[in-house]
């Protein structure tokens, strides 16, 4: 069956299983609540994960570790600028996007001009961005405009709005990756940078665009998350460092680059949230919960990569 050969199917199987086990524990009482919460929280991972996926597609060594700091800075600055006024929502979003674009440019400038490996360049960049966020925020917690708070916490036809936004973003990302010239070209770069260069591709432009895209999605995610949680906090991006990478890998994207897929990010994001919910539902302590989360992630990756190895 061709569906079983897709590397992303396993993250959905795992997510479905965990969902079922969790529902069982509560006797089906919280089915709708759990599903809505899962969709909401998964949406944030999906948005940052999509950006990270594009960067990972560029091949070995490409990664953006500045994602959490970018989220924090974009959320902080945008909320401070909007100052709870509904009229300033669009310019606020514009500022968040602008921050993302700027961070992406500087990231690639460090990588290219100073020839620093991406993992170091983006990590160094994240300290600078985080410091900028601290300087702007100064510990204040500014509320988001009411309209934004309502939108990010609201539902449309029973589905959380943020999940719909994430769905839209991933829909576009899927088309871009699978069908567009740009998607084809970054996949070429991921397989062999010298070969892509000698095939005449503008490799520097493409890599720059990809780092900008990743930082921009992180900034948009930071903006939404700050509005959703009632204000920007300095540590709000922290958990998305590992999360953004984990959802890409669990989703079946090749770590070595050149072979990525979008649906897997959804499966993996749902799964990651559900595992924590399940372990909470069963009343495990924090220590046990972390150990089990790690073990479950490892087994899903093993399962998915095992299938891939067999079909190639």
């Amino acid at each position: 069956m061709s569906l079983l050969r897709k590397p992303w199917i396993w993250s959905f199987v795992a997510a479905g299983l965990v969902w079922f086990v969790t529902i069982m524990a509560t006797g089906g009482a919280s089915t709708i609540g759990l599903t809505q919460a899962t969709l909401t929280f998964a949406a944030f991972s999906v948005i940052v994960g999509t950006g990270q996926m594009f960067v990972i597609t560029l091949g070995p060594g490409n990664i953006d570790l500045a994602v959490p700091a970018t989220m924090t800075l974009a959320g902080t600055v945008a909320l401070k600028y909007m100052d709870t006024q509904d009229a300033l929502i669009l310019p606020g979003l514009g500022i968040a996007i602008g921050i993302g674009i700027g961070v992406g440019f500087v990231n690639y400038a460090l990588i290219k001009a100073l020839r620093i490996p991406p993992i170091i360049a983006t990590l160094a960049m994240s300290f600078i961005i985080q410091s900028a966020a601290i300087a702007t925020n100064r510990g204040l917690r500014i509320k988001p405009p009411d309209a934004m708070a309502d939108f990010t916490t609201g539902l449309t036809l029973g589905i959380p709005n943020v999940a719909l936004v994430a769905l839209g973003i991933t829909g576009v990302a899927w088309v871009v990756l699978m069908r567009s010239v740009y998607g084809r070209q970054i996949s070429a770069i991921g397989q062999s940078l010298p070969a892509a260069r000698m095939a005449g591709l503008p490799v520097d432009g493409l890599r720059l665009a990809t780092y900008v895209l990743c930082a921009t999605l992180a900034a948009v995610c930071g903006f939404l998350l700050a509005c959703f949680s009632g204000g920007a906090a300095l540590n709000m991006g922290a958990e998305y460092l590992l999360m953004s990478i984990a959802v890409v890998i669990i989703g079946g994207t090749a770590v070595a680059g050149g072979d990525s897929n979008v649906p897997g990010i959804w499966g993996a994001s749902l799964f990651m949230f559900l595992v924590v919910s399940m372990l909470n539902t069963y009343g495990f302590g924090a220590g046990v919960r972390l150990i089990l989360t790690g073990l479950i992630i490892i087994s899903v990756i093993l399962l998915a990569s095992g299938r891939q190895g067999a079909t190639r």
């Binding site: 010239v181 996949s187 591709l201």
Partner: peptide, 21 residues
């Protein structure tokens, strides 16, 4: 192997990569 083929791709994609636009 150094700067020619894209090993994950089909023959067609390897051929078309330089004229995608």
């Amino acid at each position: 192997r150094l700067n020619g083929t894209f090993d994950l791709w089909s023959i067609l994609r390897n051929m078309s990569v330089a004229s995608l636009p």
